[in-house]
């Protein structure tokens, strides 16, 4: 079979072709896909949490999510979940980078409806990082395309070329987009916004994206 690849992701189950972009299903990606879709359903059916903020020298304040705010934030969380699910399946480097960009912007969207200054402050700085990291992501993908002549992960898996620097660039883009260790501060502030299941979607998407990027970089 010509598209069969051996990778760290486990057994190869099949592929879904859309022209040059071929989605492929492995053990790992099937499981992640189901997790992301399941969580999207959970987000759709759950009501948001209410936060009780204790105040010094006054009555405690109840933070709740209004209906209008709920609608946009739920929509953003669902879009984020669907994009995360399909990012697990995609078999094209540039397409994956675009998925990361969409996930980044939906993450901003989940918190942008909160009218609190510190949340918007964190969202703004996260947006700046997300914009900067389009350079390493798309630039890394373009350099890989220049060196190997293809963007498809399935083709790259069989070629075994020296792509160390390009992979480093690509990984740096992922680090910025998901907020890995030293660059976590802006994203960690965003998690503190009220409205639990939607905020957790940011968490889940970054976790799945980190694992999936590691898998891609080990495969190619």
């Amino acid at each position: 079979m010509f598209l069969n690849i051996t990778s760290v992701a486990g057994e190869f189950y099949g592929y879904i072709p859309f022209g040059d972009i071929v989605l492929y299903v492995t053990e790992f990606s099937a499981i992640s896909f189901v997790i992301a879709l399941f969580f999207t359903l959970v987000v759709y059916f759950t009501k948001p949490e209410k936060q009780l903020e204790s105040q010094i020298g006054g009555f405690d304040k109840l933070n709740y999510v209004s209906l209008e705010e709920l609608k946009i934030r739920r929509l953003m969380a669902i879009l984020c979940g669907i994009c995360t699910a399909f990012a697990m399946l995609t078999g094209d480097l540039f397409n994956y980078a675009l998925f990361l960009a969409v996930i980044g912007i939906t993450n901003i969207g989940i918190v942008s409806a909160v009218k609190k200054e510190w949340v918007l402050n964190a969202a703004y700085y996260y947006g700046i990082i997300a914009m900067i990291s389009t350079l390493p992501l798309f630039g890394g993908a373009a350099l890989i395309l220049a060196k190997t002549g293809t963007l498809s992960i399935l083709e790259l898996a069989g070629k075994h070329q020296d792509l160390l620097f390009q992979k480093m660039l690509y990984a740096a883009g992922m680090v910025g987009e998901t907020g890995v260790a030293p660059f976590y501060a802006a994203k960690a502030e965003m998690f503190r916004a009220p409205g639990a299941p939607y905020i957790l979607m940011i968490h889940l998407s970054s976790l799945l994206i980190v694992i999936r990027t590691a898998e891609i970089l080990l495969t190619i």
Partner: peptide, 25 residues
């Protein structure tokens, strides 16, 4: 539209999402 159509879907989705954020805010 055809051979890399999925890219364009995501591209216009980005525009759609950012427009939603923008207009809501």
């Amino acid at each position: 539209y055809y051979t890399r159509g999925l890219d364009t879907i995501l591209e216009s989705l980005t525009l759609l999402v950012s427009f939603m954020i923008f207009s809501w805010v």
